[in-house]
Design a protein around this nucleic acid. Sequence first.
RNA 1: GCCCCCGUGGCGAAACGGUAGACGCAGUGGACUUAAAAUCCAUCGCCUUUUGGCGUGCGGGUUCGAGUCCCGCCGGGGGUACCA
Length: 907
Amino acid sequence: MIEAPSWRYTPALAEKIELKWQKRWAEEGCFYAANVEGPLTDGQGRHADGRKPYTVLDMFPFPSGKGLHVGHPLGYIATDFVSRFKRMQGYNVLHALGFDAFGLPAEQFAIATGQHPRKTTEENIANMRRQLSRLGLGFDPRRSFATTDPEYMKWTQWIFARLYSSWYDPEFSRPDGGRGCARPIEDLILQFESGERRSKKPWEKMSEREKSGVLNSFRLAYISDSFVNWCPGLGTVLANEEVTREGKSERGNYPVYRKRLRQWSMRITAYADRLLEDLDGLDWPETVKAMQRNWIGKCEGVKARFACPGGDAEVFLPSPSLLFHPSFLVVPSSMAPSLPEAWPEGCRKEWEEGSPSPRHLFASFKASHPYPLAHSMDGVFSGLFAEVAGEAVPVFISDYVSEPHLGSEGEEDAKFARIHSIDSSPSPESLPTEEEAAKWAEKEGIGQKERRYRLRDWLFSRQRYWGEPFPIVYSEDGVEHLLPDSALPVRLPSLPDYRPESFEPEDSSSMPQAPLSRSRDWVEVELDLGDGPKKYRRETNTMPNWAGSCWYYLRYLSPKDDSHFVNPEEDRYFLSAFHNPSSGALGGVDLYVGGVEHAVLHLLYARFWHKVLYDLGYLSSREPFFKLFNQGYVQAYAYTDSRGQYVPAAGVESRFEGGKEVFYFEGEKVNREFGKMGKSLKNMVTPDEMYEAYGADTFRVYEMSMGPLSESRPWNLKDVSGSQRFLQRLWRNVIDEETGEAKVSEEMDSETSRLLNKTIEGVTLDMEEMRPNTAIAKLIVLNNRLTSLPSTPRAAAEAMVKMLFPIAPHICEELWEKLGHASTLSFTPWPEAGKVEEEEVTAVVQVDGKVRCRLQVPPSIGAEDLEKLALDQEAVRQWLGGEDPAKVICRPPKIVSLVSRSGRKEK
RNA sequence: GCCCCCGUGGCGAAACGGUAGACGCAGUGGACUUAAAAUCCAUCGCCUUUUGGCGUGCGGGUUCGAGUCCCGCCGGGGGUACCA
């Protein structure tokens, strides 16, 4: 038996090398980004000192109890290679990773395992950190945090406080020259007090409660009544999507009721124009921009369906504004399923008695409804069904055009000017034709501006335990008060039972309960808010998960600053447009990588907060994320047996029968499916299994070579050996497997030199454009060339190792060291390509669109020479049928395209 | 339903509107081995004996030339506001 050479690149050796370099990177602070000032310096103790910053950002992970599968690191490997590439180019790279640790899954995992969510999330975070660092992913460890940390939560609440204390003035000019700006609510109060702005009732005659109501209708974070889908059986509120057509919960099939709840909202509609306009300048995938544009609300028209007594009628409206046409009665589709239930008593009674007058209904609805309709009716017009339980419905037309400041309670003025009421339900005959509708719109002066409608304000309250508490208390008269900044953070009380309270599934009178309301000691507090000690009740709703994820990228810049949520100096250095000139006037992080599933909500909410903080003078950039890149998903095969049960994918063997691949599990034939990777499909592969079996570098190369980073791809374990062979071959080309010493020659032939330069040129471009798959293919071509040589030229080996370093950093560091270099590759300059001179290139000659002949020509050949050369070819003359070509297109040195006379005639 | 994306060999894929299938996996043949593994070399879309013909989900169109651009379908994925 022959022993393997002692210096073969085996998984065991790979592990040894990987742990060695991971330790060394940590010791040398290779991933430390340098701040402008303060304690955070780079590994050499230097501040930024004018170096160019480059900020790389991942959509930070949710520390799930299920652990990572091989799909999770895809985006992190991508940001790691970009970070390493940029470091080699001399940038001061900021790359950190925090954890998004509040939220429903964390709460549910904790409930399922009978532990406190703080404990489970901490354990999950520790496990995730271990997995990620074993893959050699370089994050600045000093800048990591979880959204649940009290120090972080404090600033999330502080930002909420700023939103609550601000209003949007559409007329106010911003420093950047634009119109419309968030301003402190004090400015508004001054306007009311001075009479510059008038309210219906004189300001000085209003009670505190009335004033509070008026201000509430201006605040960017405000309280109002909103409708939710309440499922007593589950004890939770559901998204529309989670409710079936029959009005049951998707999970459990329990009844769902429409409930009006007093909740917090964010006035994102005030920023609709700016969110739309600033998209243009961002370096985002056009598809994501398109999704945001559609979400915010440009639309070319709507289809409206009306269930009428005389039949089920559909009309196309070129503008949603046409819904204001007197013939139409429209109700948001989301309200339809339980409309009578959701409506006030008077309306419901009429409804039950049959065929109420819509005008009457509308009037009584409005009278009994304390808030402006544009707010209280959630303006989902995407469906536009005027049908309830299959019947024609009385509906009203509301003005859903975003007007952030509709005025105070009961105020009735211009805001309802475009609301029309009608006297009878529509019949198909009474509906206008498209033409009539368009004519009417013209007459009424309804134009493009009114087309925007979709976007609605952001519902910001959750009836859950595991989220940020609001910094809000209520006095005994029901008026809300903001807690002073000195009272932050408001911590969650420890609650023995934090589960949501569920009810009898049919209990339609039940209401969603906030778990925090059970903690009496916490809810009832005595505070001195400036007018002596008084009793207050705390707000018991919590914030949604989005809150923490809206601003985490800012905290990376100055994670320990306890007097600012982000240090202004660091903000100006890392994020301002000045330091990122390519971003135009917008600024923001240089690169944001994450899944496309966040294309709308997260990215829209974060942009909104960023803009508010910019308006208020806390930030220097108008946009948070200048460049966005969406990586694809890793999917996997799953296998079912004859009974349709999933079998462990790892135990499935494939055989070839009759030229076709068939699959067996324990001798039984199984069927192959394709889907998400996870425990339920028994097809989960973890990074731990991968680095144990192959090493982290092989895993990284495989993930980056599977296909374009932006595309989803199936996991195929068999293919990993290709990446492993590539690294082994590279190792063997540089290292003597018997001695472990480098074996390189100092000479290089011209063919290898030419290929090397071509490779450097191509790989550099691929790395810049985030195409690691084609970069790796080019490096394999170069490596295959090196394999064919009697010995590897040193210059080729060194360039190769530098170019592969961002993707397979450990093996490259080891090779670099064995080649005689003492310092890490982390800051070694990226190789530059020399001139590539081709002696000959292949030109193709096409006749009537088909390739008929190939020619070897010098790359500098002119059009006339190339054409002449092509027409001299015997084969070409034959295909032309002996005649002159009818047309010649010549693109030297690659293409000559000839059209024959007969070919032209056929056309 | 609505919005966005994707569809190329047995498989993962490559291809500024210009030689379709780079690179990798699997397969096939060979070298080396007592043998196997590993390694190295060759081959590898389909049809045809060949000249050649056909091929990028389907049907049209634009173009000298279409995987790529346009129109209409079919199939798959993501989002749809309380999963994040």
